[in-house]
């Protein structure tokens, strides 16, 4: 049933997300031709682009979560013979999928902006080191984004299910989202912060670091990802519990 739910959830938003992804790639293609906006595709440019996309994507995902489950469409979703946990999990997986599609679109945009020749592009694509960097970056972004989605889902469900003291519950929900995300991200990054020098850590992951340092960097990243998943699971379970025990469709 999870597969069917995923198919349905992807159908719900594919047009909007596909349009966003195309817009991101088009930005990368068009930017070099607009001289006055010419900006070198630096690390900052890439991170900035990712953050904007993430925020937009997160907003759209949360809107879908709210309208699909807690609005009129909830009358369909919660009468399907599936567990509420599967519904929440499907929403989470779909949001992560779309955000990763956006990251890939942002990556493609950067490649287009660099205006590589086909030979250079082939060289980059065939480089193992480049793929290591891409995977590293994707994991790093997911460590941040996934618990944010889960904590926002938790906040949205707790806010929309309450009947009394709506304003107070709304404020509490926002606190849950902000504090929940902050705790999850800080906990996931504890290993990286041990270095006290994030640039040094970033250099370990790919360049001329020794095999031991390289493995340490990846191990820290994987542990960070596991912590992030643990927080995501906690927030997901709480969201499911709220929906299961306190569902109150208006």
């Amino acid at each position: 049933m999870l597969g069917k739910l995923l198919k349905l959830d992807i159908m719900f938003g594919w047009k909007k997300f596909a349009a966003m992804a195309v817009a991101v790639v088009m930005t990368g293609i068009v930017l070099p031709y607009i001289r006055k906006f010419y900006v070198f595709p630096t690390w900052g440019f890439f991170v900035g682009l990712c953050l904007i996309i993430c925020a937009l994507c997160l907003y759209v995902c949360c809107q879908y979560f709210k309208s699909n489950l807690l609005g009129s469409e909830g009358y369909l979703m919660f009468t399907l013979p599936v567990k509420s946990g599967s519904i929440v999990l499907s929403k989470l997986i779909t949001a992560v999928f779309w955000i990763n599609v956006m990251f890939c679109a942002a990556g493609a945009a950067v490649v287009f902006k660099m205006q590589y020749t086909p030979a250079e592009l082939f060289q980059i694509i065939s480089s193992v080191d480049m793929w290591k960097r891409v995977i590293f970056m994707l994991i790093l972004c997911n460590i941040v984004v996934i618990p944010i989605i889960a904590s926002v889902y938790l906040a949205v469900s707790s806010r929309n299910i309450t009947v009394k003291n709506k304003l107070l519950n709304g404020i509490i929900a926002e606190i849950i989202a902000v504090v929940g995300s902050w705790i999850a991200i800080r906990a996931s990054f504890w290993g990286i912060e041990l270095y006290n020098d994030s640039e040094y850590y970033m250099s370990l992951r790919m360049d001329s670091a020794s095999k031991h340092e390289f493995m340490t960097a990846w191990m820290i990243l994987i542990i960070g990802f596991a912590i992030s998943m643990l927080f995501t699971a906690i927030y997901g379970i709480l969201t499911n519990l709220i929906i299961k025990k306190r569902l109150n469709l208006k």
Binding site: F78, T79, L80, P81, L247
Partner: peptide, 27 residues
């Protein structure tokens, strides 16, 4: 099965509203 926050007993074919009863009820 759209409201779970209530007291008392509601049973469909002997089961409280759940995934199994949703397969029996056409709403």
């Amino acid at each position: 099965g759209l409201l779970s926050d209530y007291s008392g007993r509601a049973e469909i074919c002997g089961m409280a509203p759940c995934v199994e009863t949703k397969a029996l009820v056409s709403y």
